[in-house]
Design a protein around this nucleic acid. Structure first.
Lengths: 245, 245
DNA sequence: ATTTATTATTGGCTAAGTGCCACTTAATTG
DNA sequence: CAATTAAGTGGCACTTAGCCAATAATAAAT
């Protein structure tokens, strides 16, 4: 049919094929008052106009060099943040999730601290933080309820064996605050001593002075922030002993 | 602009937009002679005609109810297997990976035993098993070298804390064979006693008699196969102690 | 100024888990 | 029958985790 790769490409036209819609959605988490929150935006256009949804949208083939860039762009538009923790959670696709037809979305999860982003987010129309528990009870656009649940579950799972939760806290923070964040995410109470033994403070955190503890009273606590350089945050080991990633 | 959701959908035409290509690729792993192998197919059409690639292709919007179904269909076409372990690894998308334009692929990983599939696969033209190490050295179609590396890495990582490697073995197998599979996947030597203590044999395996050990000599070994019912295979614990998934 | 309440941080004991290696068991080979 | 091979177990030292109590350092109350 075609005589060469070049010949094939000359005749190829993507519009001859039945391609699905492709979008990127980002579940952006933070911690406010000891509770996990997620950034939602109110849809200004059809479909599902007026409903709350995750920040997201279509790939811009000119601007975005890859999928990750699309997610970063969406994140930046809504929060002003450039370099948060951002990871792909999963990709869903089926015939029913979008009334426009077979559609695929790549779900990302981002973790950011609240305080340094509050001012910017306040200027973004239609955007606001919801406690995750509340957001999940709303009637959201598309299957975004499922997406939130999946991202939430990924975060919960990773809280079990990584230091990721440190990225949702305003720095500097105390170890007690960090522990409470883990407890809230995991839904369990942790032993103070065990937590401090297991969390690799020396490797992952940087001391930034001391300050009053949570309640304003009690012994002065050491304050920390995530150590710069490198996104190394896995710390639990399993089979092969000397894990290195 | 539009008066209602219905009105909007009436005027919506996906071909008005610049949608990327969307495909699904499946890294199908098995174990042959103590080495990890991957199923590859020789491309019969442009682009990259004649090169080796992962089994994969486009979504069939009529047949496939979701992405997972697309992956299952591809797997079934090449191996005849209906219900293997199949999981999504990641989704890649960028402007350069396909000469036809911005393209997105969802990468899946499947684990199957070799023996029961050998006959079927022999009938599939252009399909054959390659040792993973060899496959990675070839000049493969698209970015399939990267895809293989990512799927391989996912398998390695999961070998560290799950029982997944049992799905690449021909059943029945001995615990020593299972341990050797772990060692090959992880690239480390494991302690026999530690391995047997840690692997939850009672929960995940089923005894199916006894048989000669590996080399044909030595004490009779107990033979096992993966226990039916449920895909529960995670067994290592981390923070919150009482893990339940 | 002293006591009380509150919170951070560390010590220390016990129990459970892991690494290591030798021993026992049960088969084949010569 | 002895030698060899491989499965499976015993046992001990060492490490890690759960538990809880002691100590340190501050604010608030008396």
């Amino acid at each position: 049919m075609y005589t060469s790769e070049k010949d094939y490409l000359k005749h190829y036209n993507i519009h001859d094929y039945d391609a699905p819609l492709v979008s990127v959605d980002v579940a952006i988490f933070t911690f406010i008052d000891g509770k996990l929150h997620i950034l939602m935006v109110e849809r200004g256009d059809y479909p599902h106009k007026g409903r709350w949804s995750l920040p997201g949208g279509f790939i811009n083939q000119k601007q975005d060099k890859d999928l990750h860039a699309t997610a970063l762009r969406k994140l930046k538009e809504k929060t002003g943040v450039k370099a948060p923790h951002l990871e792909q959670v999963t990709t869903l696709g089926n015939a029913n999730r979008d009334p426009r037809g077979w559609s695929v979305t790549s779900l990302y999860m981002a973790l950011i601290p609240y305080a340094p982003t509050a001012e910017f987010i306040a200027t973004v129309v239609g955007a606001r933080w919801w406690p995750v528990a509340i957001a999940l009870k709303q009637s959201l656009a598309f299957d975004h309820g499922d997406l939130i649940a999946q991202a939430r579950e990924r975060l919960r799972a990773k809280a079990g064996y990584t230091a990721l939760p440190m990225y949702v806290l305003n720095a500097p923070f105390t170890l007690t605050q960090l522990q409470q964040t883990y407890e809230e995410l995991l839904g369990v109470v942790l032993e103070k001593k065990s937590f401090r033994r297991k969390f690799p403070v020396d490797q992952l955190l940087e001391e930034v002075g001391e300050g009053l503890p949570e309640g304003g009273r009690g012994r002065i606590a050491t304050l920390y922030r995530p150590r710069k350089g490198g996104d190394r945050y896995t710390f639990l080991r399993s089979f092969g002993a000397g894990e290195d990633l």
